[in-house]
């Protein structure tokens, strides 16, 4: 199980990897990364490693995207695991999260 990792690519691009256990207990840390990322123009979020996810986690992503978009940014998905896509589909959040249909190779 990995933690949320933030990779700095200069000052303009930020990559955030979501942890395998992406659930309520792990969210304070992820939230901190996301809040920080709000100040970066280009952010890439990688959810390919996510194995377990809950409503709280997806809600956090929704809140992040809404604010990021409001700030004129366009956060991009680097990947999203099947577990994440299934959970988003159940909660009707695929659109709000703009999840990719499949994970790019």
């Amino acid at each position: 199980m990995g933690k949320a990792t933030t990779q700095r690519k200069g000052d303009t691009v930020r990559a955030i990897s979501l942890p395998a256990d992406f659930r309520i207990a792990a969210l304070d840390e992820v939230k901190a990364s996301l809040v920080e990322a709000l100040d970066v123009p280009a952010v890439q979020i990688d959810g390919a490693a996510v194995e377990r996810v809950d409503t709280a986690a997806l809600q956090l992503l929704v809140a992040y995207r809404r604010e990021a978009v409001a700030r004129g940014q366009a956060p991009a998905w680097q990947g999203a695991s099947a577990a994440m896509r299934e959970a988003a589909a159940v909660l009707g959040l695929v659109q709000a999260l703009e999840l990719p249909a499949t994970t790019p190779a």
């Binding site: 309520i24 969210l27 304070d28 992820v30 939230k31 996301l34 809040v35 709000l38 409503t55 709280a56 809600q59 956090l60 929704v62 809140a63 992040y64 809404r66 604010e67 909660l91």
Partner: peptide, 15 residues
């Protein structure tokens, strides 16, 4: 849902 991400308490449900 709170207007800002910072205001969101991750353990609470606002959906």
């Amino acid at each position: 849902l709170p207007a800002t991400l910072a205001a969101l308490e991750p353990g609470e449900c606002h959906l």
